[in-house]
């Protein structure tokens, strides 16, 4: 296999607070290959969005990357100057945010926003940039793009605006796209269209995508691999099919078990008891141990590392060996 396009090693993000640093991301490592869609799932606050924000270098103070390294095509980008980082954003790594209604400047025509982004990164004339802008809008499926380029954001529906947001993120043809909950704010029917669009664009352009979501359905439709995050760590990572069918980590198992299924006969969905610990009160050993029925004395004091367990790689001393279907049944 060729070298990964994006490689994150032992990433650590901390927030300085009055009562000392709060570790929000703790030792996250993953590789993203060319043309690959890597999903990140987990509950709110697990650190999925923060991981994406860290990669693109947009963590707001008091947050700070305090350890590890981020490499883009082998080159370290976590230590770059503000100006160097700015050149990478949009050009090498693009980002799509959750809410298309608030992601666009309401006072600027979408064409101007596109042209502005293109000219910032690519040495082309305004007329050329304009032609590219129209082409981009066509690529993301906006009808009558040549006219719509003159429209303001409020003249588009939510789904259309998310297409515009995607066009903006793609404007300078980045190699990596970080999609942070790209469909969460949309209607279900529109979600499917946006996912199909993302899928089409990634395969056409060979982009790598970090897809951050809490919707396993979205992951299952589009991602190649998936990383399950819990309390600022990746607890399991592997090919989507394996993680969905036969997860090794009890937390992943709990997540998969809580997905509603049309075929299942039992009436009640399984739920994971308790809630994710606060960052201020992380347990000493495995962060999931207080909620885990498999946890023993060792889990409470020692933190498991990621290791090959069955089909996937997971961080658990007592990995599950049965499939989701068996556990549910």
């Amino acid at each position: 296999m060729s070298d990964p396009i994006l490689s994150v090693k032992d990433l650590r993000v901390e927030f300085a607070t009055r009562s000392g640093p709060l570790r929000a991301i703790d030792g996250v490592s993953f590789d993203l290959n060319k043309g690959e869609v890597l999903g990140f799932v987990g509950e709110s606050g697990a650190g999925k969005s923060l991981t994406g924000t860290a990669v693109i270098g947009l963590i707001d103070p008091p947050g700070k990357i305090t350890g590890g390294e981020i490499r883009l095509e082998g080159r370290r980008i976590d230590h770059l100057s503000i100006e160097e980082l700015r050149r990478i954003r949009g050009r090498e790594i693009g980002m799509i945010f959750q809410d298309p209604l608030t992601s666009l400047d309401p006072l600027m025509r979408i064409g101007d926003q596109l042209i502005e982004t293109i000219i910032t990164h690519v040495a082309v004339s305004r007329t050329e940039a304009r032609a590219r802008a129209v082409k981009l809008l066509e690529d993301v499926g906006i009808p009558a793009a040549a006219e719509r380029v003159m429209s303001y954001p409020h003249e588009f529906s939510g789904g259309m605006r998310q297409r515009v947001v995607i066009a903006l993120a793609l404007a300078a043809e980045p190699k990596v796209i970080i999609a942070d909950e790209p469909t969460t704010a949309l209607d279900v029917s529109v979600q499917a269209q946006i996912i199909a669009l993302l899928k089409k664009l990634t395969s056409e352009r060979g982009m790598a995508v970090m897809l951050i979501t809490h919707d396993m359905g979205v992951i299952a439709q589009i991602a190649n691999r998936v990383a399950v995050m819990y309390s600022g760590r990746i607890v399991e990572i592997g090919p989507v099919a394996d993680v969905v069918r036969q997860p090794a980590h009890p937390y992943s198992m709990g997540l998969m078990g809580s997905i509603p299924s049309l075929h299942a006969e039992h009436a009640r969905l399984k739920q994971i008891p308790g809630s994710m610990p606060r960052l201020t009160a992380l347990p000493a050993g495995c962060a999931f141990s207080p909620r885990c029925e498999r946890a023993d004395a060792r889990c409470k004091v020692e933190r498991p590392a990621l290791a090959a367990t069955g089909m996937t790689t997971s961080a658990c001393f007592h990995p599950v060996t049965s499939t989701v279907a068996e556990v549910a049944g």
Partner: peptide, 12 residues
């Protein structure tokens, strides 16, 4: 968000 998105696009 649109300022954040502007930064994410690498605008000056």
């Amino acid at each position: 968000d649109y300022i954040r998105f502007g930064r994410a696009r690498g605008l000056t």
